[in-house]
Design a protein around this nucleic acid. Structure first.
Lengths: 344, 344
DNA sequence: TTGTATGCGTTATCAC
DNA sequence: GTGATAACGCATACAA
């Protein structure tokens, strides 16, 4: 078939091992033979067979990326594409390849991971979500393969390398921001509480209210599992006798949906309702009004995750570090100081 | 290290080849030994080493996915995540893995492709864009590796398998739709004309105008290379003495930006300006107003591409087929019948 | 139905 | 500095 190291060796009148050494640019080979061999490689159109190398050195130079179920959700979200982009960028620099999980259900994804790990298809893995009762992280811990979590571990925090925001603080700050604008009735639209990020942000929101001596009002807080519920939630919030004057929304895309409902219901944002959301994706910039959004620096998250993983692959660390990426509130049009009239 | 086929063989008192045959569930092995071997595999925690298999059978069961430069752009776009999702889904069903290009520049991407192909890391490749003067497609044609293009080939149409919409018709229909709503001054915001899709849609738009005996007015047509130019374009359109009353916009995200500018400039959509865009992504559904958008059935595109590729990998076809995915206009709020007053 | 021998394309360990 | 030889873990043609 294709030209191999042996073919090159024969034509160059050297041994295969010499050719191999030339490929890895071994210092123990004379410049002269290097030149000769390289010329022959060029002539014959030789190219390294990666799989053979993988088998021989037991390293794949590939990392697996685990997306949350389902990739359908994941990839609709502006978060995942951006994480992926960051991982890609770093991997490219380090000459690593990326392999994605393709499963639709949690079970399929788990199978994908097992295949990656046990089939020795990757040198390490990045998991891009943290979820309750998920088998992936426990499995990876047991497997001894290097892995990094984007998000905070549900358990065994000391034993996993993770990269995350301080979501509690971030949500608390976001809520504080609204409080400082004079809002007292602040609603919350979060996400599926099976995910760590949803829990933590919800806690942050509540922490702020408590700290500011506001009551926690059940009717102002929802954590929908699907985007489909968002419309109904907004309607129910705004149908209250005392509707919230501001909303903390855990995702830009959800916030966009909120804007839509508001527009239809003739609720003016930010005049009657201020909105702060999360992730500061492109959507926050092009919506109308533009969205004040907590920049979670998704690219940084992915970048650091890839960096940590590759470092860990190269040399296992004694202890498992964690990295916290700071968040910044990106102020735009969707929030404004509460006025007298709106507070009634 | 890990337990291999030989270890299993020894413990089960059979030869390695027998174990190998059990793994592939060969009919030439008795049920009895199959059971025995499987039990031992279970006991010892055996798992197939993929790379060894790859080397032995010279098949990777992996397909490469080439994203356009830069993945930054790609992944911001709702299009690419969705294509990727579709490819993932199909690949999972067929037990194929996915490997992504990670390059940022065109040159890096090309290098990624070369690595994939010559390093024999994939059995086939899906290219998710079609661009002028791009080296990837010509290289793949020369390489003889199966590949499928999402989009239409710039040249040598007969020799490449591709999956695409009829973008000319789609854009023509979109424009016709506006014409049928009574619009006569119809503007166009397209994309980088280096991409085939931009050229074709632009042609479709013009075809409609010509067919309907409308003049082609330069001041109504733009094909920006970046999203940053969109704002200025909208302002220039709407600043004309006779501004367009309707717009064909080639992407939902761009349309969202247009909506933003309109809102700020107090241009009412659809009252003063109707907008039809492309791709029918989630954004079209949650924007306000919701966007009438040409559904290009991106998931179908990706799905068919993966299907064609895997078929081609399994059995090279004599001729290179192409698949055209139909488009449908998804009608929403952003378009309306032209009224007398608005046409002045 | 099962076993033997060989190959897949590298790298690594010794020699020389 | 360079070469022979043995892995790496599995698949497969050929025997039996």
């Amino acid at each position: 078939m294709a030209v191999t190291i042996k073919d090159v060796a024969k034509k160059a009148n050297v041994s295969p091992s010499t050719v191999s050494r030339v490929i890895s640019d071994s210092p123990r080979i004379s410049e002269q033979t290097k030149r000769k061999v390289r010329r022959v490689m060029e002539e014959m159109g030789y190219h390294l067979n990666y799989n053979a190398r993988v088998l021989a050195q037991q390293k794949t130079r590939t990392i697996g990326v685990v997306m949350k179920k389902s990739s359908s959700d994941s990839l609709h979200d502006p978060f995942f594409p951006e994480v992926l982009r960051a991982i890609s960028t770093y991997c490219n620099k380090e000459d690593y390849s990326i392999m994605l999980t393709t499963g639709e259900s949690e079970e399929e994804i788990f199978e994908d991971v097992v295949k990656m790990v046990r089939g020795r298809r990757v040198d390490g893995i990045i998991v891009t979500y943290s979820k309750r009762n998920d088998k992936v992280i426990p499995y990876l811990m047991e497997s001894k393969l290097p892995f990094v979590l984007v998000g905070s571990p549900v358990e065994a925090e000391e034993e996993v390398i993770y990269v995350d925001n301080d979501n509690l603080k971030a949500a608390e700050n976001a809520t504080d921001y609204l409080v400082n604008l004079g809002h007292e009735r602040i609603g919350y639209i979060g996400g599926d509480l099976d995910y760590d990020v949803s829990i933590t942000r919800f806690e942050g929101y509540q922490a702020s209210l408590t700290k500011n001596k506001f009551p926690l009002i059940e009717a102002y807080m929802e954590n929908p599992k699907t985007k489909a519920e968002v419309e109904q939630i907004v309607l129910s919030f705004m149908g209250l006798k005392k509707p919230p004057t501001a909303l903390v929304v855990t995702d830009d895309l959800v916030a966009l949906k909120v804007l839509q409902v508001c527009r239809r219901e003739k609720i003016s944002v930010p005049k009657e309702l201020s909105i702060i959301s999360f992730n500061n994706s492109i959507i926050a910039q092009v919506s109308s009004p533009t969205l004040t959004s907590v920049d979670t620096q998704v690219f940084q998250l992915g970048h650091e995750a890839a960096k940590c993983l590759i470092e860990e692959i190269n040399e296992a660390s004694a202890y498992k570090k964690s990295i916290i990426i700071p968040t910044v509130i990106e102020k735009r049009e969707s929030c404004k100081m509460l006025t007298e009239e709106a507070s009634n």
